[in-house]
Design a protein around this nucleic acid. Structure first.
Lengths: 110, 110
DNA sequence: TGGATGGTTGGGCGATCGTCAAACTAACAT
DNA sequence: ATGTTAGTTTGACGATCGCCCAACCATCCA
């Protein structure tokens, strides 16, 4: 399958990022991505109690807002936080959000 | 008039704050509050092109999320950013948002 | 080729959102 | 008392949201 759409770093909009991070399910996803060094934790819906299509929707919102990077690996997807891009675009923002979630940002280049 | 409802500092929720800061009009309001040392800039709708009731709605969202503090002064309201409370609850968050808006946080105790 | 796996897409549902308009309330001035 | 000023509240509107279900599409393995 084609690689899905991702905004360029400079096209990431603050309002879109804030909106993406305003939903409990998406915050939980982001928290888990932070736990696993920015990578998706094996199977796209690891214990979050929503339908898989709902989860797919949330992953899309995060991706299109520029929060995550989704790459296709065979028949599964790997999702990573765009830690570096976000730090470039909005310094300190993701770090403080992760801190608020009780996580630590593991800064790495994307 | 009665003083309106404000959440306690410890009751401020991340998702609510993120949601409050995910709308362009509200981000503009926050940016202007940051410009005027956290205070409302004379007249609650200073040049933002929305109806006054819409503006009132946005001020309520910000207040109930814990982003702003609204006090009644005669027949007008004074709105301030809850800079200190937010820094306590979610360190660095408001600062990075204001930086993203091209503003500087003027940290003061509320 | 066929079947299972992993995820997306589209439709539909109720709920919430941002907006405006109109009515209302409270504070001040005359 | 009357009017003005400043803002809230209520109700309505279309748009979007989060959710599920069903159908679909790719990929991999037999």
């Amino acid at each position: 399958m084609r690689e899905p759409f991702h905004p360029q770093t400079e096209d990431i909009e603050l309002a879109a990022v804030m909106h993406a991070l305003s939903d409990p399910v998406r915050l939980e996803i982001v928290a888990r991505l932070a736990d696993t060094d920015g990578e998706n934790c094996g199977g796209i819906g690891d214990g979050i109690d929503v339908h898989k299509s709902t989860l797919s929707h949330h992953y899309r919102v995060l991706r299109e807002a520029g929060v995550t990077l989704t790459t296709v690996e065979g028949r599964s997807r790997v999702v990573r936080l765009r830690t570096g891009d976000l730090e470039t675009r909005f310094p300190g923002l993701l770090t403080s959000v992760l801190a608020a979630l009780g996580r630590t940002a593991s800064l790495q280049a994307d």
